[in-house]
Write a protein that binds this DNA or RNA. Structure first.
Lengths: 254, 254
DNA sequence: GGTTATTGTACCAATTTGATACAATAGTCC
DNA sequence: GGACTATTGTATCAAATTGGTACAATAACC
């Protein structure tokens, strides 16, 4: 595995692998844990700047492949639910100060008009992952890479606050129309867990019985025989997405 | 007004104004006329290739400004409803053959590795315009620029069929949630005209009385006193969007 | 003034959604 | 084992929304 330094900060001040210039990818990676919606953030080493995981598009890969590569590097898992949601293309999207600081701290030699100082158009992707499967991975330029509650997270650098907001809005509006929420849970889950997920994403309480009715009426779930062992009360059923049913659902609803 | 030739095909084989390399914009411009949904297409001069109007992003403008500029050039009108809907980023998005042919026909000198032969990432925008306000404008590289019924249009070059399909799907799904359809009609219109617009976009018949009830319940329309003079029957009311009401609607529904 | 086509609204039935009630448990405590 | 508790699954009813029909109003034409 190459370091970021080796990949992007070579002696001739160009990325080692040819990339699409002035195009970047920023990923808003959502996870769900302890009844909280989390996102994966990183902090640059020695610099007071938090950011969304991001990267660039190699000349020989599609933007989706690039986003998947970036995600896999950060989370260690493949086959993540991933979708582009918006392009951020303001003319002043250039962040020389932060990049200068990062390069200085890391003893990276730079010159005026370094390629990173250019204006960038950034394609926003959001990812939904099973929190329990992910181990956030540091790279050589960052000192923290971890999960943060969306209600309580560090201030982000660049225009990343705006990117995050747009991703969250997209997630909310896709929650009912697509079967998007399930990607944030393990393969099997209870109705209560699913409801709690919906409630945190939507930011409001839902009526239990109606939620149950609504979800079951989607006809995409399969009831697993096994039951739960927990508190002193009736044990909930455990559910699992039935792939065939999901396919049928998507076919009729799109 | 500069010609395309002057702007993009200079003696040193570079665009005259600095652009973001390998990024393009493609516009799906919808209009509504004779109860048909139309899009604006152009045909390259002397080449058997139809395409969506497109262009590039100058270094000193945002992608939205670029899209607006491209649209204004094509339609002659400003303040168009415009929204990005998807980014097309396959790694094989390069179309050397067509560009070569176009340049040859137009006596444009080119070399191997011309900038247009590169792989491009294209940002799709869709626009909704008042058909009656638009006069499609030719440029020096095209020989046809005009409206085509979406049910009966020429085969498109590049990956433009896919771009068109995605734009249409986006338009359909935004029709009910946002107040998007009104942009395709003149300032004032009858309920029948609006219904016919909805029916062609959605591709299905709607029940008149329920449609009327639904639209009126949005509480965004203002009834204009004047009535219509047409056939031998009761005259319909004429409606107009009430900007204040629209604002209130969008505030409560987003 | 009668005819015709179309419009606006009222109305009822069917469906969906909001909210409550209640029986069925899986534990705990005794 | 039996009472107790918290939670789950389902039934049920009311309220709201949507589907579909009926009908009066009316603008042009004859």
């Amino acid at each position: 595995m190459q370091t970021i330094k080796e990949q992007y900060f070579t002696d001739d001040h160009k990325p080692k692998i040819k990339i699409i210039e002035q195009v970047s990818i920023d990923c808003v990676i959502f996870g769900f844990h302890d009844n909280q919606l989390k996102i994966l953030l990183l902090k640059f080493k020695g610099v007071d700047a938090w950011a969304l995981p991001g990267g660039f598009v190699f000349h020989n890969e599609s933007i989706e492949e690039a986003a998947n590569r970036i995600l896999e590097n950060r989370t260690g898992i493949k086959d993540i639910y991933l979708e582009q949601f918006y392009v951020f293309g303001n003319k002043n999207r250039q962040y020389r100060e932060v990049h200068e600081e990062v390069m200085n701290i890391n003893d990276i030699d730079w010159k005026e008009n370094h390629w990173l100082f250019q204006r960038f158009i950034s394609i926003g992707f959001y990812a939904l992952v099973d929190f329990s499967k992910v181990t956030p991975e540091l790279d050589d330029l960052s000192e923290i890479c971890g999960w943060y509650d969306i209600e309580d997270m560090p201030n982000l650098a660049f225009d990343h606050p705006q990117i995050f907001q747009k991703a969250l809005a997209t997630l909310r509006s896709n929650l009912d129309t697509r079967l998007v929420g399930f990607n944030l849970l393990p393969k099997t889950f209870t109705m209560g867990e699913l409801q709690s997920l919906y409630e945190t994403i939507l930011g409001k309480k839902l009526i239990r019985t109606n939620f149950q009715r609504k979800i079951l009426s989607l006809e995409v779930l399969e009831r697993v025989e096994k039951k739960f062992s927990g508190g002193s009360h009736k044990a909930p059923y455990i559910y699992r997405l039935d792939d065939a049913k999901v396919e049928a659902f998507l076919k009729t609803n799109f």
